[in-house]
Design a protein around this nucleic acid. Structure first.
Length: 595
RNA sequence: GGAUCGGUAGUUCAGCUGGUUAGAAUGCUGCCCUGUCACGGCAGAGGUCGCGGGUUCGAGUCCCGUCCGGUCCGCCA
């Protein structure tokens, strides 16, 4: 060993001992006759002190040659410091060196290796191995490790087996785009990298492994985001002989265990919300319930029908065309925001009018602290009518009502964005506060306008609720699935379903999704065949591991919780991939490139 | 595929309405300094203003195109 101790463990108890420590030069402070070297490794920083009066010429010469990030080892005595530091764990001692070895010189790094680095994201990605030396990045990976260990601990105790599934699998038409891998031995044919081990874990259930899990890489060739990488990690789980309730309880237990074991936080029992309510009250299938600010409907909703409840209609027929023509008029009440200035309200209007949000405008009504109500539509609604709004919003003096109108789906989505924006502005989205819940009863199918056909909302193996099966032919969009999402702080952390384990029902699903019998057989015959050999009822869930880590770490970007992440364009700027391959390789694979 | 913000010293940024020699901080180099720990002091080096074209007497600044990066929409069963 090139060290007897790490740079983080020496303290006053070691004074007088002869030790060897190794690490990187964090910095040097040269005061002429006194010179300090901060030596850093994964575990901490230890100060090496050289008094030029007493030190050998060799040591002084070596020390003055050092630069940042040189790798050195220092043999010397632990001595108590003359002036101690309480900023670092080893601040009470320093090393008086007898010998300094330069193990490797280093050129000046392009950014500072400090907690608050001066490096931009791009540079840090290019020199990721330097970025990894920084405390914040290291701590994120330590957190990731801890979450993985605790996940395994929890699942192992419950008899789950970690089983590896193949990475070279088969491309399927459903879902995300596949990354594909050409097969040299099978010219013209391709493997696909798994979007998830979905079918394999179901086959493990058929194979009698009634409790499976895997912390596993998944691959999706879709456009990226701050919380999406082309390769990402899932905690993938499946159980046999269970119903939805069992899955929810088991993984609620896991989430609570992780919060307790990793962060020391006791999470209350997870609440549940139906998909329909999530959309109705939050305009979003993954509501952030750290704060209320539920949607308030000022006109009957589409599902309730035109004029179904005229008493509820507080806005129509007063000559305000925007509301009269709207399919939906819906708003939120921002507590205590009545004092928003014109400028702030204009900002909010601009916010909802951004093309990504897509609202055409924003109506506001201030419930002033003097009890009067001032709205942007006073021309159409008198004080008495506005008071009725306030009642509907349950608004108090000092509150601000924000209202959007328009086509239902678009308006809900826009108001959802506005709600989150207001939550942020009002400081209601504390990253140290965690609100976990289940969204259940997702629709089985959603209609894809572009492809003019039904798509599986979760995936094609999801079972419909038995009581809704009769609707499969008459009203496919109304069929609910035994599908559920785990949502934490408005982030979709996981999702799963009870699967179909019956060949006939699975065949029916494929038919609904527009597969011919032949296509279904060719793509998923192996699964349907397996179902004929005694498939147990089963279901499962998959949790986004990277997202879970970033959530625990209080970040929204998952990149810094991955040792070697890719950028927004799916590139690894450190190794510069993807990259062209040699003509010989292409030839061997029987691949020719389009010009 | 689309929206939007950015690209100026090794790095992070400033640079207004187009106008003299493009600045600051930090890092780097040299010298001084006996208790620093974001050490301090003095001096110095360091620039194809992403790239191409255009407007203009004159472009870091305006226009067009392009490349790269961030965030978002579409997409992500």
């Amino acid at each position: 060993m090139l060290r007897s101790h790490t740079c983080g463990e020496l303290g006053i108890a070691h004074v007088g001992q002869s030790v060897t420590i190794s690490g990187w030069v964090q910095g040097i402070r040269d005061k002429g006759s006194l010179l300090w070297i901060d030596l850093r490794d994964r575990y901490g920083i230890t100060q090496v002190t050289i008094e030029t009066e007493n030190a050998s010429a060799e040591i002084i010469e070596t020390a003055r040659k050092l630069g940042r990030e040189f790798v050195i080892s220092v043999k010397g005595k632990v001595v108590e410091r003359y002036s101690k530091s309480d900023k670092i764990a080893t601040g009470a001692i320093e090393i008086s060196p007898e010998k300094i070895n330069i193990l490797n010189a280093a050129i000046t790094p392009p950014f500072t290796i400090e907690d608050e680095t001066d490096g931009g994201d791009d540079l840090r990605m290019k020199y990721r191995y330097l970025d990894l030396r920084r405390n914040p990045v290291r701590k994120n990976l330590e957190l990731r490790h801890r979450i993985a260990i605790e996940t395994r601990n929890y699942l192992d105790k419950l008899n789950f087996l970690e089983v590896e599934t193949p990475v070279l699998i088969k491309s399927t038409p459903e879902g995300a785009r596949d990354f594909v891998v050409p097969s040299r031995m099978n010219p013209g044919e391709f493997y696909a990298l798994p979007q998830s081990p979905q079918t394999f874990k179901q086959l493990l259930m058929v194979g009698g492994f009634d409790r499976y899990y895997q912390i596993v890489k998944c691959f999706r060739d879709e456009d990226l985001r701050a919380d999406r990488q082309p390769e990402f990690t899932q905690i993938d789980c499946e159980m046999a002989f269970v119903e939805q309730e069992d899955i929810l309880n088991t993984f609620e237990g896991m989430v609570r265990h992780l919060f307790k074991a990793v962060k020391g936080i006791d999470i209350p029992t997870l609440s549940r919300m139906t998909y329909a309510d999530a959309m109705k009250y939050y305009g979003n299938d993954k509501p952030d319930i750290r704060f209320e600010m539920k949607f308030v409907h000022l006109s009957p909703t589409l599902s309730e029908g035109e004029g179904a409840n005229t008493q509820k209609d507080l806005v129509k027929g007063k000559g305000f065309k925007v509301f009269d023509d709207a399919q939906l008029v819906v708003g939120i009440c921002a507590k205590g925001a009545a004092e928003y200035t014109r400028k702030q309200l204009d900002e909010l209007t601009e916010f909802v009018k951004r093309p990504q949000i897509g609202a055409t405008g924003l109506v506001y009504a201030r419930y002033n602290t003097d009890g009067t109500i001032k709205s942007s539509v006073d021309k159409f609604y008198n004080e008495e009518e506005l008071k009725k709004w306030a009642v509907a919003f349950n608004a108090q003096p000092g509150d601000l009502m924000l209202i959007l109108a328009g086509e239902e789906a678009k308006t809900r989505k826009a108001l959802s964005e506005l709600r989150l924006e207001m939550g942020t502005r009002l400081g209601l989205r504390d990253k140290n506060k965690f609100a976990c819940h289940w969204v259940i009863d997702f629709p089985l199918l959603e209609y894809n306008e572009e492809a003019k056909r039904w798509h599986a909302m979760h995936h094609p193996f999801t079972s419909p609720k038995p009581e809704d099966i009769e609707l499969l032919d008459s009203n496919p969009g109304a069929v609910r699935a035994n599908a559920y999402d785990l949502v934490i702080n408005g982030v979709e952390i996981g999702g799963g379903s009870i699967r179909i384990h019956n060949k006939a029902l699975q065949a029916k699903m494929f038919e609904l999704l527009g597969f011919t019998k032949e296509d279904a057989q060719a793509q998923f015959g192996f699964l349907m065949n397996a179902f004929e050999f005694g498939a147990p009822p089963h279901g499962g869930i998959a949790l986004g591991f990277d997202r879970l880590c970033s959530l625990f770490g209080g970040a929204e970007v998952i990149r810094d919780f991955i040792a070697f992440p890719k950028n927004n364009s799916g590139r690894d700027v450190m190794i510069d991939s993807p990259s062209p391959i040699a003509k010989e390789q292409l030839d061997e694979l029987q691949i020719s490139l389009k010009k």
